[in-house]
Write a protein that binds this DNA or RNA. Structure first.
Lengths: 235, 235
DNA sequence: CCAAAAGTGTTAAGGGTACACCCATGG
DNA sequence: CCATGGGTGTACCCTTAACACTTTTGG
């Protein structure tokens, strides 16, 4: 039984690639797969079914390739340069996986890829490689190896988009526990933006956004003032 | 000789649609084509050749369908909903144009469309309908009829993008004469943003952007102070 | 009472808004 | 000298940045 992808199932010439950012404990990572039996790394991608809307396809692709379910993804750019894919890479990758494909194969054609991105807590998800990959792992954003095709460009562009819309998209991303301290939130911002923020001003800015509800204090047992806990109101 | 589009020439299932904004004398318009022998209106769109990058394809499509040359276009969104196109519209449109196409025809398949937009001076371009259209005309932005498919949504989304990036994109758009007055520039802004701006503050803001060079005064012959002329420095 | 972290206040700088005022032009 | 429109000054507010100060906690 071959695992070879066939063109009858999918829209031809269009792919979706997902840049998944993972945050936890002051670390920002991205999720990468390798091509089976090779060292080539790529962001999880796949193809669109006739019956799917783009967002649905992106969700399914992510689930099939990494096991991550119910992740809200958003499109950020289309990558369509004529030479964005080196077909020799795909050919070798398929060969390494045990599939010999000819020059007229579906996968050898030009592909235009729609980039989607998401941000999640990487401890809340257990990525699992699919049949086309040996590994499906988190890589620190500051130590990303070279990626296949134009995937390095995709990651760069996705990160720009994430930083630009961080305030607006924060609630939906669901990265923090139900309740959290202002310090937790600041660590999240500092990690994603990759810069230090002033604690006192950060507090005021967040409160002024009107998306936080202040709850009881959190007694940590440490010898210092107990911080308030907060919750997103979701308004 | 048939003008029917064949799938051998183009990437299947992907189209490009161009939202072209035209400005002049306090008027903002968009360019629309009809489907030959019908009342259906659409923004100019087309398909991508194997040899083209996306931006090149968008330029060529615009030129072929409207006669407009050398227009710099930028992508703003991908439209891919499963039901975004009503195939009966396409079928009837092709029939009205003298082409009967079956349910298996290339054009009857699902299409995902990449939206591109541009902003030009509508007096500097003479739009000409191609063989698939009877008319290729400017429509005032405030009086846009219902468009086919999801093209009304495309226009809305493109207009949001245009307004959002107006400051940054202004120079490239080449909408004003080589030299112009601050009043000319303000009219452009007010028309595109669809709101009045304070003359005095607008002046300061534009000068603070550092993209204008002040030249001689312009003697209009009117009974009032002569305004300075300005030029974009392009820095 | 001390160290450490959380929370609040205060000041200065900068940008946006509104409007008053001065300047040029030709009738 | 007046009407008209162009250009500058100024006062106010809000936001941001920087930092001093106060409060809370457990040792």
């Amino acid at each position: 039984m071959s695992t070879l992808i066939s063109s009858v199932d999918y829209l031809p010439g269009i792919s979706i690639d997902c840049v998944i950012f993972g945050f936890h404990d002051n670390q920002l990572k991205i999720l990468l797969l390798n091509f089976k039996s090779t060292d080539w790394l790529a962001v999880p991608g796949g193809f669109i079914k006739e019956s799917e809307n783009l967002e649905e396809a992106a969700q399914r692709i992510l689930e099939e390739r990494t096991g991550l379910t119910n992740i809200y993804l958003e499109q950020f750019h289309v990558f369509g340069d004529r030479n964005r894919r080196d077909n020799e890479v795909m050919k070798s990758a398929m060969a390494a996986g045990g599939n010999i494909i000819g020059p007229d194969h579906f996968l050898m054609r030009r592909f235009i890829s729609i980039g989607f991105y998401a941000l999640i807590d990487f401890t809340k998800a257990t990525p699992t490689p699919d049949v086309h990959s040996d590994t499906c792992e988190w890589y620190d954003i500051k130590e990303i190896p070279t990626l296949v095709y134009d995937h390095s460009l995709m990651v760069t562009k996705a990160l720009e988009t994430l930083r630009f819309f961080l305030d607006e998209k924060l609630i939906g991303f669901n990265l923090l526990p139900e309740v959290f301290t202002m310090n937790d939130l600041q660590n999240l911002y500092e990690t994603i933006l990759d810069k230090k923020l002033l604690r006192t001003n950060f507090q005021r800015k967040m409160l002024s956004l009107g998306i936080l509800e202040r709850l009881d204090k959190k007694m940590t047992g440490a010898a210092n003032k107990a911080p308030y806990l907060y919750r997103f109101t979701g308004k």
